[in-house]
Amino acid sequence: MEETVLEHGAEQAAEHGAAAAHGAEAASGGMPQLDFATFPNQIFWLVVSLVVLYFILSRVALPRIGSVLAERTGTITNDIAAAETFKQQAAEAEAAYHKALDDARAAAAKVVEESRAEIQKELDVAIAKADAEIAARTAESEARIAEIRESAAEAVSKVAKDTTQEILTAFGVQADAAAVQSAVDQRLNGGAA
C-alpha cells in the first residue's frame, strides 16, 4: 500500500518535473495568457492589424458608407417632397373635378329649368287657347241654347195664346186678342215667377 503511494508520488514528481521543464519551454502548463515571451509578437501584430484596419475603414469604407447614407437620406427627403407635391396636385385635381362636376350639374339643372319653363309657357298658351276656344264654343252653344229656349218659349206662349184664343172662341167668347195675349203673358210670367 505504502509502496504504491510512494510509487505514485514519485511518478507524479517526475511528471511534475517534466511539465515544469515543458512549461519553461512553451508554457503549455501554465496560462498561455501569462507567457510573456509571446507578448511582443501579439502586440506587434495587433498594432499592425489595427493600423491596417483603421486605414481601410477611415480611407475607404466609412466615407463610402457615409456618402451612401447621406445620398439615401437626400433621396428619401426628395421623394417625400415629391410625394407631397404630387399629393397636393392630386388634391387640386380632385377639387377641379368636383368643381367641373358641380358646374355641369348646375348647367344641367338650368337647362332642365329652362326647358321646363318653355314647355310650361307653351302649355299655358295652348291651355289658354283651348280655354278660349272652349269658352267661345260654350258661349256660342249657350247663345244657341238661349235662342232655342227663346224660340221655344215664344212658341209656347204663341201656342198658349192661340190655344187660349181657340178655347175662348170655342166657348163662344169673343175675346180680344190683345187682352188674351197680355193675360197669357202675365200668367206665364207669374208661373215662371
Partner: peptide, 15 residues
C-alpha cells in the same frame, strides 16, 4: 521560438 515578427496563429486570426 515566438519572436516579434514570427507569423503565429494569433497573427493568422487577427489577419
Amino acid at each position: 521560438e515566438v519572436g516579434v515578427f514570427t507569423i503565429t496563429n494569433a497573427t493568422l486570426w487577427m489577419a
